[in-house]
Amino acid sequence: IRGIGLAEEHGATACIIEMDTPGGLDSAMRDIVQRILEADVPVVVYVPPGCRAASAGAFITLAAHVAAMAPGTGIGAAHPVALGGEGIDETMEEKVVNDAVAYIISIAEARGRNADWAEAAVRESRSSPASEALELGVIDIMADNLEDLLLQLDGRVVTLLSGEEVTLQTEGAEPNYIDMGAIERFLFTIADPNIAYILLSLGMLGIMLELYNPGTIFPGVVGAICLLLSFYSLGMLPVNYTGVLLIVLAFGLFVAEVFITSHGLLALGGIASLTVGSMTLMGSPYFQINPGVIAGVVIVVSVVCVLVIGAILRTHRRRQQTGREAMVGTVAVARTTLDPTGTVFVHGERWQATVDEGKVEPGEEVVITEVDGLSLRVTKKNRGGE
């Protein structure tokens, strides 16, 4: 859309859009189609070698003033699919399909293209290679490369929405490529299934580490940023929300492992949930996460969680090392006779102590069993002491 605006602003001969897409959101596709139909400059959609114009890409290609494809490319498969990998009821599906059919037929008729093929692309997911698309009147030109396309465009007359007829003069024209801006490149990069998945995992991991150790701040901040970026990425992709919930459940189980004694069952459940959620996160065969990325994330997250959970549990189980409670189990030396009360020496201090049974002579060792205010209860070392 920005490219069309720049072409109009600079009085370009034409705006050529190089297309390579497996599809996308219906709302985004309609915005692009509307902008092409309203353009004050001829818009050419070209599918370069090895690329495709599938699903939403078929609508956009048909909407162009001139539709062109290279040999070895394809177009079609425009049947609507539900986001989230979830099915829709028959009535709703019929409404969605009929709406898409009406839209693509209106586009094809407006450009004088094969409306029957356009309808079949939506209802039957029909696809055609470039040669067949040209023969059926789906596209206007089959060009080997951009230079060949410019040669074939030269002298072609197109009609704009205003009714103005424009004769293209493209022979010898110098293409002016419009690169994405820094923000566009960044957003384009993260709108990738693998990146979105990694951001979601890092976000959940950061939040989880913050919950494990409140006040560390850094993992919480990084996790929140990654989580928000992942929401943007996933919003641009056909996501299976069941997969998202399974991943969230996995991290919930990892957190619960710290507070609930499950002997590792909750952690194992978390690993299983993370694995299944990762494999089902994308709801379209055209958008899939690399299995190697899934394996790497599951292994890294699992190892980090196990190590952190283990460290936390060891800290919770460790005997307190400071304060009066830390004295329990410590060995003291009797300074006076304990019969049953006397004085013992421990940690450089004299304490009043009461022995639980028997009599303790000066110099004998006792084990502290309880701290009661400013006095101790002890037992003889050879009676279950250390």
Rank of each mutant, 00 (worst) to 15 (best):
N240M: 07
Y241C: 00
G243K: 09
V244D: 07
V244H: 04
L245G: 12
A250M: 02
A250H: 09
A250W: 05
F251E: 02
F251D: 01
G252E: 09
L253N: 04
F254M: 11
V255Q: 08
E257M: 08
V258T: 14
F259I: 10
F259S: 11
F259M: 06
F259E: 12
T261R: 12
S262E: 04
H263A: 11
H263R: 13
G264K: 10
G264T: 12
L265W: 10
L266Y: 15
L266D: 12
L268T: 15
G269E: 06
G270L: 04
I271P: 01
I271N: 02
A272R: 03
S273Y: 07
L274P: 03
T275P: 01
T275R: 03
V276H: 02
G277K: 09
G277D: 10
S278L: 07
S278E: 13
M279V: 13
M279D: 07
T280L: 12
T280S: 06
T280R: 10
L281H: 08
M282Q: 09
S284Q: 00
Y286N: 09
Y286R: 05
Y286T: 03
F287P: 00
F287G: 00
Q288N: 06
Q288S: 10
I289G: 08
I289A: 06
G292T: 11
V293D: 08
A295G: 03
I299H: 07
I299P: 02
V300C: 05
S302L: 07
S302Q: 07
V303A: 11
V303C: 01
V304W: 09
C305P: 00
V306R: 05
L307Y: 13
L307I: 15
V308N: 02
I309L: 02
I309A: 08
G310N: 14
A311Y: 13
A311L: 14
I312P: 02
T315R: 12
R317S: 13
R317I: 01
R318A: 15
R318S: 13
R318C: 01
Q321Y: 00
T322E: 14
T322W: 01
G323R: 10
G323I: 14
E325Q: 15
E325R: 15
E325K: 13
A326L: 05
A326G: 13
A326C: 09
M327F: 11
M327H: 05
V328D: 03
T330Y: 04
A332N: 08
A332K: 07
A334S: 06
T336E: 13
T337C: 00
L338K: 01
P340V: 12
P340N: 08
T341K: 06
T341D: 11
G342F: 04
G342P: 06
G342N: 07
H347K: 14
H347T: 11
G348W: 08
G348L: 08
G348T: 06
G348F: 10
E349L: 12
E349C: 00
R350Q: 13
R350N: 15
W351T: 10
Q352L: 10
Q352R: 14
Q352W: 11
T354K: 03
T354D: 05
K359S: 14
K359Y: 04
K359F: 11
E361F: 10
P362L: 08
P362V: 09
